[in-house]
């Protein structure tokens, strides 16, 4: 691939950041959609409390990558290990990983037939079997964390996009996950609402949450990311700190991409 001398993709990808303890380990992962290979030889290790931002052109496999981590897509080859649990066909492992991994979607995917409070308490009540009072207490504290406790009795349809996305974050956090996945959380928002969602994500990152964020918000990547992963054509092309990545990119693809969007 690259002929650059002092840049080692494998090392950059496999060295966990954060506390240095491993949270997510992905080895040699491939993913096919029919005849189309969506992911090729993905290797990535994410450390505890690390924030990894994944960027790349559309269709590069960013979303597929994080959707494989909680089995919204089934990977075909290789291994994914989340907090010591391997993602396999074992029903128990799948449920265990999903319990520990929260996800925020581009289109929010709030449940429209439930109130905000019911949206947030649903999983703790149904999956963790918490008593109602405890689930509601936790839900309210998460809603306060994203600064919209007053919206609890409303329905999602009554909220703005930014508010809905913050509810979605609270919904994921209410399960007290160890990892949070963000799939382009601000792409469907009007510009004036992006900041309130990013603020909530920054606060979350500062609190020490392990996060993988697929986004086009370069400002967020620069400010919060421990490492930035650049993907193209289903492969990880370059991995590095924000400084390395934005100031001194090594690969031609990366340079081209950055020149197009900055």
């Amino acid at each position: 691939m690259s002929t650059e001398t002092n840049y080692d993709l494998t090392r950059a990808a496999m060295e966990p950041g954060g506390t240095g303890e491993v949270m997510i380990e992905i080895h040699d992962m491939d993913k096919w959609f029919g005849d189309f290979q969506a992911l090729k030889d993905i290797n990535l290790v994410v450390g505890k409390q690390e924030v990894v931002v994944v960027i790349g052109p559309s269709g590069s496999g960013k979303s597929t990558l994080i959707r494989c981590i909680n089995r919204l897509e089934k990977h075909d080859e290789g291994t994914i290990v989340v907090d010591g649990v391997e993602m396999s066909d074992d029903l128990k492992n799948i449920q265990e990983i999903r319990r520990e991994v929260g996800m925020v979607f581009q289109s929010f995917n709030l449940f429209p037939h439930l109130t905000v409070l019911d949206n947030v308490t649903l999983a703790p009540r149904q999956v963790r079997n918490w008593p109602k009072a405890k689930a509601e207490e936790e839900a309210m504290s998460q809603l306060e964390r994203v600064k919209i406790p007053e919206q609890a009795p409303k329905y999602p349809g009554q909220l703005s996009g930014g508010q809905q996305q913050r509810v979605a974050i609270a919904r994921a956090l209410a399960m007290q996950p160890k990892v949070m996945l963000f799939d382009e959380p601000t792409s469907a928002l009007d510009p004036e609402m992006i900041k309130e969602v990013l603020d909530a994500m920054v606060e979350l990152a500062e609190s020490g949450m392990t996060m993988i964020v697929v986004t086009h918000e370069m400002g967020f990547a620069r400010a919060v990311a421990d490492r930035v992963v650049f993907m193209a054509d289903g492969q990880i092309v370059e991995v590095g700190t924000p400084e390395h990545f934005f100031e001194n990119p090594q690969e031609e693809r990366t340079k081209l991409f950055l020149s197009q969007i900055l």
């Binding site: 992962m29 089934k74 990977h75 075909d76 080859e77 290789g78 291994t79 994914i80 391997e86 993602m87 396999s88 066909d89 074992d90 029903l91 128990k92 492992n93 799948i94």
Partner: peptide, 14 residues
């Protein structure tokens, strides 16, 4: 290797 690693017990294998 097929994704999935060690075989889980039968009654939990999807």
């Amino acid at each position: 290797t097929t994704a999935g690693g060690p075989r889980p017990p039968l009654w939990r294998d999807v």
